[in-house]
């Protein structure tokens, strides 16, 4: 009698270039998880125990294959001094960036794992690892340096810097990279798999040459650091990625999670070097009919299953809070029909 694998076993096999027993299904149920635990998204962002509780509640209800510890992409910038605005019904937003002018960069702190809301993440990772870590992988989503740099400076000013003052932009990215390292190390020790998210670096926001010059080097160094520990690295980039596909492969990341690109296109371009995760649109899940979700999910599976190094059915970005239950159900129904979550 064959037994079903655990999600952790599935991912372990994927990372060894083996086929797991079924389609790995790991949508980014992050902020949306709060509702499954009956708590507010805002509270989860400030309380690691609640964040873990929400992840467990969502995973038990939906039975997907991964935990994702995440609140927002400003968490490293906040630990370095940027001020965020919190609210109960949503994740925090950048309020006051810490870098107003170039000379502020020199005074940026190198935060230890006890700074800002790092302890929130680490507590959530620790709880998930202690309670479910023998069967479900705990991914902890950390902003890549380029995205953190935007949180230090303010997205608009930073993007202007990339053109008008590249040395400043580079200094910001380097500072962000240095500040990210202790968090990554601490996540591993807490039992999590650090994953890098870089929404600001997508071709929807920055030019490909900007990605190459500013985002790629720091991301590659962080991936290399995690590879030193022989960890498998998930890199998530929302938005348009087609023009930077080769650059994303050049980061060395093991699993590319992407948003706006055809799965077949990504598969054909970099599928021989990276495992792929994608990419049902959160917009579809939030605002279209269930039939459309079903069809889009089916298409992603159809195109992804041929990926030479493996495929994870996921969403292109976070599952939006308030997504119609029937749409979420349609996503999981398509996954189940393809041998995914039961």
């Amino acid at each position: 009698m064959r037994e079903a694998m655990t999600p952790l076993e599935r991912f372990a096999l994927l990372f060894m270039d083996e086929r797991p027993d079924r389609l790995i299904t790991a949508p980014f149920v992050t902020t949306a998880a709060a509702a499954f635990a009956g708590v507010s998204p805002g509270a989860c962002c400030r309380d690691g125990a609640l964040l873990a509780r929400a992840q467990i509640a969502a995973q038990e209800a939906l039975r997907h294959d991964a935990f994702f510890v995440f609140s927002d992409v400003a968490i490293v910038a906040e630990a370095m001094g940027s001020v965020l605005r919190f609210a109960e019904d949503r994740v925090p937003l950048l309020d006051v960036p810490v870098v107003r002018e170039a000379r502020d960069v020199d005074g940026l702190p190198l935060p230890g794992p006890d700074r800002g809301r790092f302890p929130v993440y680490l507590e959530a990772v620790r709880i998930l690892h202690e309670t479910r870590g023998d069967r479900v992988p705990v991914f902890c989503l950390v902003p890549a340096p380029f995205t953190t740099a935007a949180g230090l400076r303010g997205a608009e000013d930073f993007l202007v810097d990339t053109i008008a003052d590249p040395p400043l932009a580079e200094a910001l990215v380097l500072a962000a990279e240095r500040a990210t390292v202790p968090l990554l190390d601490a996540i591993v020790l807490a039992g999590g798999l650090p994953a890098l998210v870089d929404p600001l670096a997508s071709a929807s926001v920055a030019a490909p040459k900007t990605y190459r010059a500013l985002a790629l080097p720091g991301t590659r160094r962080l991936v290399e650091r995690l590879h030193r520990l022989d960890l498998d690295v998930l890199l998530h980039v929302c938005g348009e990625i087609t023009p930077i596909l080769e650059d994303l492969a050049a980061t060395g990341a093991d699993l590319l999670s992407f948003d706006r690109a055809g799965v077949a296109e990504v598969r054909d371009a970099v599928g021989d070097r990276m495992r792929l995760a994608g990419n049902v649109s959160p917009v579809t899940i939030l605002s279209r009919r269930a039939e459309e979700v079903l069809e889009e999910t089916r298409r992603a599976i159809r195109e992804g299953m041929g990926a030479p190094r493996g495929f994870v059915l996921s969403t292109g970005c976070e599952v939006p809070p308030g997504s119609p239950p029937e749409n979420l159900a349609a996503f999981y129904r398509a996954a189940a029909a393809a041998g995914g979550v039961p």
Partner: peptide, 16 residues
Amino acid sequence: AHYLKPPSSYLPYGFR
């Protein structure tokens, strides 16, 4: 084939 790694490398893969 490079296999040298510290104990912490096995934590995320369930060896608690």
